[in-house]
């Protein structure tokens, strides 16, 4: 009996059925997509798109929380009350009214180290001085600027994923007028994308092994970003810059760092030799190519006149 069951052709059929059964089991028993925990049942009201209130100035403020965003957020298993402690009682007795600063503090109740670094950074310091623009947690970590859409850094759609960092910084730092208010006149994003580092990041794929390239944060720091005028900035002065270069280019010295154009174009004040090289090679390129094109054009005219036939 057993021998007849285990005949090769039957064995193959049995194996095939086994595979189908396992596949079906995986398909049927697979867990449903992750959902937010929502212990306090907040989404019962806040999941309604039209939910809104009116603030003290009479403006309509939406109170809607996108369930879709929350379901994929890094904090989906953390109770809403953790970040909104004043909202523990229903009906709510207080207004939300997060400011950039109070929101950062709220994040800091858990992420104390990052909050501390940020509060000492140029962004944090500007914020304390009352700047309405300085970047805080959500400006860099929330997808689409939605505070409930903070996702992990290693997710490729995250604004802080290596390949996306330059674009995230550019959201503010490519705004010329806004940057002029803070004395930043260099077109930092444009010049970065023109550089070897920028091009390598742009041309590389999303996989991490392709992203071992310098982006904004590699040279300027992450939560602890300082103004380039600050002597403690990793890019302030040739000495600091050389140390920063060395973190990727082993053995790089001050002379190596001095050869870096930075975020400025080559000019009389910034590596003049590069400016003269640009003028010389552009002139050479244009004149030789123009010569070649002219020869080709007059030759083509002649060839056409001869109907592209060989003539003596």
């Amino acid at each position: 009996m057993l021998a007849s069951v285990l005949k090769p052709h039957r064995l193959i059929i049995l194996l095939g059925m086994g595979f189908v059964a396992v596949g079906l089991a995986v398909f049927l028993l697979d867990s449903p997509p992750a959902l937010a925990l929502d212990e306090a049942g907040c989404l019962a009201c806040h999941g309604i798109t039209s939910l809104s209130t009116t603030d003290s100035q009479g403006n309509k403020v939406s109170l809607y929380v996108s369930e879709e965003k929350v379901n994929t957020a890094a904090h989906r298993y953390i109770s809403c009350i953790t970040c909104h402690p004043d909202m523990a009682t229903v009906p709510h007795t207080k207004e939300v009214g997060f400011t950039k600063l109070s929101q950062a503090r709220q994040c800091g109740t858990c992420h104390a180290y990052q909050y501390r670094l940020h509060s000492l950074s140029i962004h944090g310091q500007s914020l304390l001085e009352g700047s309405p623009d300085a970047a805080t947690c959500l400006d860099c970590h929330a997808t689409d600027g939605n505070p409930h859409g903070v996702i992990r850094v290693l997710e490729y759609t995250a604004p802080t994923y290596k390949k996306n960092i330059a674009g995230t910084c550019a959201a503010c730092h490519a705004q010329e007028e806004l940057m002029a208010d803070y004395g930043i006149v260099e077109r930092v994003y444009e010049s970065y994308m023109r550089s070897f580092h920028g091009k390598a990041t742009q041309l590389g794929a999303y996989k991490e092994s392709e992203l071992e390239k310098a982006t904004c944060t590699n040279c300027h720091g992450v939560h602890d970003i300082q103004s380039v005028q600050d002597p403690t900035s990793p890019v302030a002065g040739a000495e600091n810059l050389a140390k920063t270069c060395e973190s990727c280019h082993p053995g790089a010295g001050v002379e190596f760092a001095l050869g870096f154009l930075g975020h400025k174009e080559a000019s009389r004040d910034n590596i003049p030799a590069a400016m003269y090289a640009e003028i010389f090679f552009t002139a050479l390129l244009v004149s030789v190519v123009a010569f070649g094109a002219l020869i080709m054009l007059v030759a083509t005219r002649k060839y056409f006149a001869n109907r592209w036939k060989e003539t003596p």
Binding site: E255, F256, G259, A277
Partner: peptide
């Protein structure tokens, strides 16, 4: 670039890039 800037001034690197590209 690191080796070259041990012997030559730093500006040769951006100059080389421009020349190579054009």
């Amino acid at each position: 670039p690191v080796l070259v800037t041990k012997f030559l001034p730093g500006w040769v690197v951006p100059v080389a890039l421009i020349a190579h590209s054009d």
